[in-house]
Design a protein around this nucleic acid. Structure first.
Lengths: 310, 310
DNA sequence: CGTGGCGATATCTTTGAGGTATCGCCAACG
DNA sequence: CGTTGGCGATACCTCAAAGATATCGCCACG
């Protein structure tokens, strides 16, 4: 049985007249008669009663037509749905990201993406760089934002683009002597109780701090350890010490604290966006477009790797 | 788009391999490649990724396949449903009947029909003979059980078959003097307070009673009037008089009453089953088969008018 | 550097969808 | 009571396209 048979049966039921139904279908009457006859033979039951008053579905015909109309609706919807999926208007995007990405690029990116693609299901998974790398290679994520490029087996199949530079800054209570300074020096920091974070991704931050404060790790050894940047800021606000963290901390609005640059300027690993090189999903493309629009500094780098979606 | 395209796309998705999918479909590989290419052109989106590892649906392909599978299910169900409807296994039967038919033929007929055709929706409408006639002609009923043949315009398009003879019997309290008699005479009845019914269909009953009791209607004029046979029996049980009604009353199990024949035997109009002459609905046929099986006396009459369904 | 597996392409064959002409049937009408 | 006209079915033809066969191009793999 072909969709044609369904279309013809539905048209015949609607017009109750072979000639008019055929005209509406853009064919002549004899082919319609034949197709309906073939259909009735295949189904094994008479579907229409031909009377002088018109053509009416039998009980079997009524039952058939219910299904036929539904099938035709599904077929029409198939093309529509496929088109929407192909344009990236529907679908799913699984995003892995480090917690600190929630401070700066993600709020703008996610709200914009959600506005542009309301029917795309966003799956957000906060995870460390190492896990993002594994999940991307395993196909469990579509895109990831990590601290530094993904590492490990299979990363050669990934495209990675830096989307944000970062460096160490300090955060202090507004009443703290350093609060008025434009920047604080490493020497000044060495004389203060310090607050640093201890997330899974923090080895790189700790390494940066070692570079800043010198190999004498005794200062760091005595530091207060916080689980995330919000805790660092909270502790700094309460005055127990000087917080050290990524410059992205500035994005957290918090009265009672002040942020200071640190000299010498101490770079942290770039925030990196990665995805499978062979993934040409239109939803991913749309997401990359939003990244490009929201992170103007890295637009060029992205353009080098992939073409624009639009 | 044709159903073929859906079948091919689904098979390709299941096998992930053009050659094997084609084999499963009973065609060669090149035609499958062409049909899929045609489909992708018509949909306006690539539906499958051809990789060295196999053929996999794209996001658009996944969206398409969901709809395609549903459409194919509907198409398969269309044939099944039409077949079931054609065999009278599903559908609807609108039955009009006079109340007294509920006493005798209907309980057996309905329970048997309900057992044989559990998926047929039975619509039962108690109505007078005149209304059944109109509804049958108007196509608002499929079949009717009436007292006497339907009357009025359009009855020539109906087939009517008597399915049960009937005559007047009496019902009395077990303590009543007549309770021991095999039959009561018209004379005896004339000396008793009588209980008769007054339904819409009762003119014919009243006419029969006039025949029985003589044109002296004063006896009937003083009778107690009940709305239905159950009330007649109830009143007779309470001893207020002698009930007169159709012999079908015997079907009502009721302690405390006894039924007696009446002499002379006074016929009532036959119970008649009618349906539209041009109605060949399999559900109706099945119903007629049940009537034939449950009313052995009238089997021959029915057979004269319509062929057996089986 | 073959070699084999896979999908795409080219070309031919054949099925069957659709067109035209006509028939048979019945209701309505002169 | 024959005629006519409308409708669906039938007969026959045409041609588009589904499918078969042969072959190509490509890449992974030995």
């Amino acid at each position: 049985m072909e969709a044609r048979h369904l279309r013809y049966a539905v048209a015949l039921a609607e017009h109750g007249h072979f000639g008019r139904a055929a005209g509406e279908l853009g064919i002549a009457q004899p082919p319609l008669s034949k197709q309906i006859a073939d259909l009735e033979r295949e189904v094994g039951a008479r579907l229409f009663d031909r009377t002088r008053q018109g053509v009416f579905p039998t009980a079997a015909g009524e039952a058939f037509l219910v299904r036929a109309r539904r099938a035709l609706e599904e077929i029409a919807a198939a093309t529509v749905d496929a088109g929407r999926a192909a344009r990236g208007e529907t679908g799913r995007l699984r995003l892995g990201f480090i917690a600190s990405a929630l401070l700066d690029p993600l709020p703008g990116v996610l709200s914009r993406f959600g506005r542009e693609r309301p029917d795309v299901r966003l799956e957000l998974h906060e995870m460390a760089t190492s896990r993002s790398s594994l999940a991307l290679v395993a196909g469990e994520l579509d895109v990831a934002i990590t601290l530094g490029s993904p590492r490990g087996a299979g990363v050669e199949h990934l495209v990675s683009v830096p989307i944000g530079r970062d460096h160490v800054i300090a955060v202090v209570n507004t009443a703290h002597p350093y609060a008025g300074q434009l920047s604080v020096s490493a020497d000044q920091l060495r004389r203060q109780p310090l607050i640093v974070s201890a997330g899974e991704d923090e080895p790189s931050v700790v390494a940066a701090l070692r570079t800043l404060l010198g190999t004498d790790s005794s200062v760091l050894g005595g530091a207060i350890v916080a689980r995330d940047v919000h805790t660092i800021i909270g502790l700094a606000a309460s005055g127990v010490g000087v917080g050290l963290g990524p410059s992205r901390m500035r994005a957290v609005p918090r009265p009672g604290v002040r942020f200071c640059e640190v000299t010498p300027r101490t770079p942290l690993p770039d925030l990196v966006l990665s995805f499978a090189a062979r993934d040409h999903s239109p939803v991913l493309r749309a997401f990359l477009d939003v990244i490009r629009a929201n992170c103007p500094d890295v637009g060029a780098a992205l353009n080098d790797r992939i073409g624009s979606h639009t």
